[in-house]
Write a protein that binds this DNA or RNA. Structure first.
Length: 987
RNA sequence: GGGUGCUUAGCUCAGCUGGUAGAGCGUCGCCUUUACACGGCGAAUGUCACAGGUUCGAGUCCUGUAGCACCCACCA
C-alpha cells in the first residue's frame, strides 16, 4: 500500500517496483482469477475470453527497445480487456533460439579455450541449459519493470517437456501425412556454422566482385572433320564462359548455350575440355541461358549453384561436389589444390588458368552475395541430406484464411506482403546440424531405413514390425529449425496436443502483435501450423508494428553503439556506465572510440530517469502506422512531465476533496449523490461531457490499434481540458467557504472525472494510475483493491452536453481574448485590468450574467462593464469574439504604437480569410454544387470576418489618433510614457 | 527484375470516408499565479516533393516524375 499522503514529488523509481510486486503477489495477472480477488461485479463474469501470446524472446537474451515497445502494446490491450471483465490471458514465454543461443555458448567456451567438438553432445547441451538457467531470469525481470501483466504461472519455454512433446507430435503427424520428407539436394550451407539454413536465414546484399571470362578449350569433333559451318566462335579453339565463382569450375559438368543462339548451335553435343581437370564435359542447350549476357556460354556446376542444379537435373548431368563442409577443396579436386579454403583456391585457380592463357578477361562486377544471417559467412549451395516440409499443401488454406478475413492484418497492407511470399513459397528446410534444439524424431537402422516416431520405443516397434526382430537403431543427429517449434507456439503453450481447458478457452487467440520482419519466419508458419493441427487460425488479427530506430533513424545495433536499453530510460544511467555498456563486448573493438564520441555528444550527462509510465506512453504515441519509428528521448521527457502533471493534479484533487469533505469520508457515492444538495455547474457538466468524448475516442482508437490516437486523446484531455481549464475554473467552488451544493457538485465531478480518467489511462500508464487510484478511490467511495480490476470506463456514463460545451466555449473565447492582449502587450497575466464589452448581444449578456465570476477569475479582471450602444469608452486594446468586442483600456499599460501593430497583424490575417471566403461564395458553382451545410458554414464565416473587419477598422482608427497624440510625448519622455487621457499612474 | 512504403512548421511526426493545415520538442516574449518552473500565459513558422488529371473544392482520390527507404527474386 502506498503512503497515505501523496508525496510532493512524483518518484516513479520508488512507485513502480513496489506496485508491480503487489500485483504479482496478489495474483492479478492470472487468467484464472484467484479466489477472493473478485472485485468484479457479477455482470462482468462474462464468458468472453481474450488472449495474446507473446512473441517469445530468446531465452538467454535481453529485451531491447523493440521488445519493450511490443510489450507495451500487448500489455495495454491485455489490461483493457481485463478491465472490461473478460477472462484475459497474456501468455508469456521464451524461445530456445537454436543457432543464436548455441553460438553464444560456443563463444563462452572459446573464451575458456574449449571448442564445442571437444565436448560430447550431452555435455554441451548441459552447458547450454546451465547458461539458460543463469541468464533466463533477465527477461522476466525486465518485463516486470515494464509492467507487463503476463500470467507468470503459465510461463513456457520452447524446450519445456510439454512443448517438446508438441514438437514431436507435430513432426510425426506431418510426416504421416506425407508433408515432411528427407532428401538429398542443394541447401544453403553455412560453412562456418556447418549447418543448413532455410532460405529466410540467408540475406543477400550487393557486393563488388569480378566477372571472370574463362576459356574452355573445345574438344575436336570426333569421327573426323565436319566442317564448322558458321560463326567465329565455333571455329575458334575454345569457348568463353563468364563466372563470378571461378573456384567452382572444378565441379563443372557441362557448358550450356541457348538453343536458339546461332553462334553455338553447331557445337551443341560436342565437348570442351575442362581446364585443370582434364575432364571432357558436354556442350548442352538450355533455354535458361541468356545469349545476351557475357559470351552466351554458361558453365554448369550442378553441385554448387541452384540454377545449375536445376539444369543438371533436366539434362541428367552428374554432380561433382568439390568442397568439404567447411568449404575447402576436397578430394575431387587436383592434388595441388586440395585442402585450400575456397577463396585461396579461387586465386590459385586464376593464377593457373592465366599461366595457361585461359583467362580471356576479368571485369569488375556487382553481384548479390548470400550470407548467413547469424554468422555473416558466405553461404554455399551444398549437397546434403536434409529434412523438408512440403509446404504447398499447407500454404493453400493459410492463404485462404487471410483472403477470407479469418485472419486480418493491421495495417491491412501487410497482407500483400504475406500473399506475395505465400504464393511463391518453397519447401522449408527444417533440419539443422546443431546440438541445441529439438532433436528430430527419426531413427535409422543399419540399412538406412527411416522410422519416424514419437519416441525410441515407438521407433523400435516400427523396426520390429518391419524386420520381424529387434534391430539396432540410431536417432537422427539433427535438430529442428527454431521456427518449427515457434510455429506451434499459439497452441503448444496452451497444452496441445492435450485437449486442455485453456486450449478450449483461448484458442484461437485474439491478436498477434509483432514486427513486419518476422511475417514470413513466424506469422505465416503459425497460420499454416495452426490450420494444420487445430483446424483453425491461430489468431484473428495480426497487428504489425514498425521498427524502433534511434533518433537519427538508424537501426539500433551493438556495432553501431546506438542501442538504448529501455531499462536505462526508465531508471536513468550515468555517462560512465552508458559508455561502458556501449563499448564493451564489441565484435569490432576498433569502433569503440567512435561510439564513445557519439555517445558523449548525444548524452553528455548520461540519461536521467523517466519511469516506466513515461516510456510506455511514448511507445503508444510512437505507434503510428509508419514502418520506421524514431525513438527520441525528448519525447519520453515530455511524457515524464505529463506524468508529473497528472501526479500534481491528483495531489490538488485529493487535497481539495479532503479539505472540503469533513470527518465522515465514506458517505458519498461515486457520483456525489447522497447526503446534502448537489448541484452541477456548467464547468462540471462540461468536463463530464468532454470526458465522455475522450472515452469514446480512446475506445475507437484501441479498436483500430491506433495507440497514437489514444495517447493523443488522453494527453489533450488531461492537460488541456482537465488541468488547464476545469481545475482552474472550479478552484473557487472547492474552497471551504463556497456554496455547499455547488461545492458538492464540483467535488463529485472532480473526484469522478479524475477516477475515471485514471482507469482510462491505466492500460498505458499502469503504475502512476494505480498509485493515485488507491488513494483517490476510497475518498470518493469507490471500492476495489486495485485499479487493474476496476471496470473499464463507459462513454455512456458521460453523455455529451452540448449546451455546457457551448457555454464554456464562450467563456474560453473571452478569457483567451483578454489573455492575448495581455500576452502580446507583456502585461503580467496576474495584473488585474478592467474589461469593457461592446456590441454585446442579448445572448452575450445572458452568458455574462452567468459566468462573470469565472471570467474575472481566469482573465484576472478588476471589473467587467458592458457598454451601451454608442457609449464612448477610453482608448483600449481590443479583441474580437465573434460580434462581441473586448476592450482593455490602455491607460498606463499599453503603448498605442504596439497596439496599432498588433491590430495591423490581425487585420492582415482577417483580410486573407475574408478574401478567401468571398472568392469561394462568389463562385456560383460552389454555391450550386456544394452541400447546403458547407455553403451555410462558409456564409457564417464570411459574416464573421466582415464583422471583424469592421471592428478592427474602428479600433485602428481610434488608436491611430491616440498614437499621433502620444508621439511627441514619446520623444520627450524617452520611452515609458504613453499619454493617458484619463486616469492612473505610470507602470 | 518484381513488390511495398515514405516525401506536411527548424526537428520528429499525426492528418479517418475530399470542405477553415495540427501535436510534441525546439525558438521568442512575459509571469514566483498556495497542484505542478517536470509549471503558467502569449507569439512566430508551412508554394503539404514535383507535374498533370478528376472535382464547385485536393495534403487527402487518380496518373506520371524525382528523391529516399525497405522486402522478395536464380541471371552466369
Amino acid at each position: 500500500m502506498p503512503p497515505a499522503e501523496m508525496p510532493k514529488t512524483y518518484s516513479p523509481g520508488e512507485i513502480e517496483p513496489r506496485v508491480y510486486a503487489r500485483w504479482e503477489a496478489a495474483g492479478y495477472f492470472a487468467a484464472n482469477p484467484p479466489q477472493g480477488a473478485g472485485t468484479a461485479p457479477p455482470s462482468r463474469a462474462a464468458e468472453s475470453h481474450y488472449c495474446i501470446v507473446i512473441p517469445p524472446p530468446n531465452v538467454t537474451g535481453t529485451l531491447h527497445m523493440g521488445h519493450a515497445f511490443q510489450d507495451t502494446i500487448m500489455d495495454a490491450l491485455t489490461r483493457t480487456h481485463r478491465m472490461r471483465g473478460e477472462r484475459t490471458l497474456w501468455q508469456p514465454g521464451t524461445d530456445h533460439a537454436g543457432i543464436a543461443t548455441q553460438m553464444v555458448v560456443e563463444r563462452q567456451l572459446e573464451a575458456e579455450g574449449i571448442r564445442r567438438k571437444q565436448l560430447t553432445r550431452e555435455a554441451f547441451v548441459e552447458r547450454v541449459w546451465a547458461w539458460k538457467e543463469q541468464s533466463g531470469g533477465t527477461i522476466g525481470r525486465q518485463m516486470r519493470r515494464l509492467g507487463a501483466s503476463v500470467d507468470w504461472s503459465r510461463e513456457r519455454f520452447t524446450m519445456d517437456a510439454g512443448l517438446s512433446r508438441a514438437v514431436i507430435e507435430a513432426f510425426v503427424r506431418l510426416y504421416e501425412r506425407g508433408l515432411i520428407y528427407r532428401g538429398k539436394r542443394l541447401v544453403n550451407w553455412d560453412p562456418k556454422l556447418l549447418t543448413a539454413l532455410s532460405d529466410l536465414e540467408v540475406l543477400s546484399s550487393e557486393e563488388q566482385g569480378s566477372l571472370w571470362h574463362l576459356r574452355y578449350p573445345l574438344v575436336p569433333a570426333s569421327g573426323g572433320s565436319e566442317p564448322t559451318q558458321t560463326a567465329d566462335a565455333a571455329s575458334s579453339e575454345y569457348l568463353v564462359v563468364a563466372t563470378t565463382r571461378p573456384e567452382t569450375m572444378l565441379g563443372d559438368t557441362a557448358v550450356a548455350v541457348n538453343p536458339k543462339d546461332e553462334r553455338y548451335r553447331a557445337l551443341i553435343g560436342r565437348s570442351v575440355r575442362l581446364p585443370l581437370t582434364g575432364r571432357d564435359i558436354p556442350i548442352i542447350a538450355d533455354d535458361y541461358v541468356d545469349p545476351a549476357f557475357g559470351s552466351g556460354c554458361v558453365k554448369i556446376t550442378p553441385a554448387h549453384d541452384f540454377n545449375d542444379y536445376a539444369i543438371g537435373r533436366r539434362h541428367n548431368l552428374p554432380l561433382i561436389n568439390v568442397f568439404t563442409p567447411d568449404a575447402h577443396l576436397n578430394e575431387q579436386t587436383p592434388e595441388a589444390l586440395r585442402g585450400l579454403p575456397r577463396f585461396t583456391a579461387r586465386e590459385r585457380i586464376i593464377e593457373q588458368l592465366a599461366a595457361q592463357g585461359l583467362i580471356e578477361r576479368i571485369e569488375p562486377h556487382k553481384l548479390m552475395i548470400p550470407r548467413g544471417d547469424r554468422s555473416g559467412e558466405i553461404i554455399e549451395p551444398y549437397l546434403t541430406d536434409q529434412w523438408y516440409v512440403s509446404i504447398a499443401e499447407l500454404a493453400v488454406p493459410a492463404i485462404a484464411a487471410v483472403e477470407d478475413g479469418r485472419v486480418r492484418f493491421v495495417p491491412e497492407n501487410w497482407s500483400k506482403t504475406y500473399f506475395q511470399w505465400m504464393h511463391n513459397i518453397q519447401d522449408w528446410c527444417i533440419s539443422r546440424q546443431l546440438w541445441w534444439g529439438h532433436r528430430i524424431p527419426a531413427w535409422y537402422d543399419d540399412a538406412g531405413n527411416i522410422y519416424v516416431a514419437r519416441g525410441a520405443q515407438e521407433a523400435a516397434a516400427q523396426a520390429r514390425a518391419r524386420h520381424g526382430r529387434d534391430v539396432p537403431l540410431r536417432q537422427d543427429d539433427d535438430v529442428l529449425d527454431t521456427w518449427f517449434s515457434a510455429g506451434l507456439w499459439p497452441f503448444s503453450t496452451l497444452g496441445w496436443p492435450d485437449a486442455t481447458p485453456e486450449l478450449a478457452s483461448f484458442y484461437p487467440t485474439d491478436v498477434l502483435v509483432t514486427g513486419f520482419d518476422i511475417i514470413f519466419f513466424w506469422v505465416a508458419r503459425m497460420i499454416m501450423m495452426g490450420l494444420a493441427f487445430m483446424d483453425e487460425v491461430p489468431f484473428r488479427t495480426v497487428y504489425i508494428h514498425g521498427l524502433i530506430r534511434d533518433a537519427e533513424g538508424q537501426k539500433m545495433s551493438k556495432s553501431k553503439g546506438n542501442v538504448i536499453d529501455p531499462i536505462d530510460v526508465i531508471d536513468g544511467i550515468g555517462l560512465p556506465a552508458l559508455l561502458a555498456k556501449r563499448t564493451s563486448g564489441l565484435m569490432q573493438p576498433h569502433l569503440a572510440a567512435g561510439i564513445e564520441r557519439a555517445t558523449r555528444k548525444q548524452f553528455p550527462n548520461g540519461m536521467p530517469a523517466h519511469g516506466t509510465d513515461a516510456l510506455r506512453f511514448t511507445f503508444a504515441q510512437l505507434a503510428t502506422q509508419s514502418r520506421d519509428l524514431r525513438f527520441d528521448l525528448a519525447r519520453v521527457e515530455a511524457n515524464r512531465n505529463f506524468c508529473n502533471k497528472l501526479w500534481n493534479v491528483a495531489r490538488y484533487a485529493l487535497g481539495a476533496l479532503e479539505a472540503t469533505q469533513g470527518p465522515a469520508p465514506r458517505a458519498l457515492g461515486a457520483a456525489g449523490a447522497g447526503a446534502g444538495p448537489t448541484e452541477l455547474s456548467v464547468a462540471d457538466r462540461w468536463i463530464r461531457s468532454r470526458l465522455g468524448v475522450t472515452i469514446r475516442a480512446v475506445d475507437e482508437a484501441l479498436a483500430e490499434y491506433r495507440f497514437d490516437f489514444a495517447a493523443t486523446a488522453l494527453y489533450e484531455f488531461t492537460w488541456n481540458e482537465l488541468c488547464a481549464w476545469y481545475v482552474e475554473i472550479v478552484k473557487p467552488a472547492l474552497r471551504a467557504e463556497a456554496d455547499v451544493a455547488g461545492r458538492a457538485g464540483a467535488r463529485a465531478t472532480l473526484g469522478t472525472v479524475l477516477e475515471t480518467l485514471l482507469r482510462l489511462l491505466h492500460p498505458l500508464m499502469p503504475f502512476i494510475t494505480e498509485e493515485i487510484w488507491l488513494r483517490l478511490a476510497p475518498q470518493i467511495g469507490v471500492t476495489g483493491e486495485t485499479i487493474m480490476l476496476a471496470p473499464w470506463p463507459r462513454a455512456s456514463d458521460f453523455p455529451r452536453d452540448l449546451a455546457a460545451e457551448q457555454q464554456i466555449g464562450w467563456v474560453r473565447g473571452i478569457i483567451e481574448g483578454v489573455r492575448q492582449i495581455k500576452g502580446e502587450m507583456d502585461i503580467p497575466l496576474m495584473r488585474r485590468v478592467p474589461l469593457l464589452l461592446s456590441s454585446a448581444s442579448r445572448e452575450d449578456l445572458a452568458q455574462l450574467q452567468q459566468h462573470e465570476g469565472m471570467l474575472a477569475q481566469l482573465a484576472v479582471l478588476s471589473e467587467i462593464r458592458v457598454l451601451s450602444q454608442g457609449e464612448a469608452h477610453p482608448p483600449s486594446a481590443a479583441a474580437l469574439v465573434r460580434e462581441l468586442t473586448l476592450l482593455v483600456p490602455m491607460a498606463g499599460l499599453i503603448e498605442p504604437a504596439s497596439e496599432l501593430a498588433r491590430l495591423e497583424k490581425l487585420v492582415q490575417r482577417n483580410r486573407q480569410e475574408l478574401a478567401r471566403a468571398r472568392a469561394k461564395l462568389g463562385n456560383q458553382e460552389f454555391v450550386n454544387n456544394a452541400p447546403g451545410e458547407v455553403v451555410a458554414q462558409e456564409r457564417a464565416r464570411l459574416a464573421d470576418f466582415e464583422h471583424r473587419e469592421a471592428g478592427l477598422a474602428r479600433q485602428m482608427q481610434q488608436v491611430r489618433v491616440l498614437a499621433q497624440q502620444s508621439e511627441p510625448a514619446d520623444r520627450r519622455g524617452g520611452g515609458g510614457g504613453a499619454t493617458r487621457p484619463a486616469t492612473e499612474g505610470a507602470p
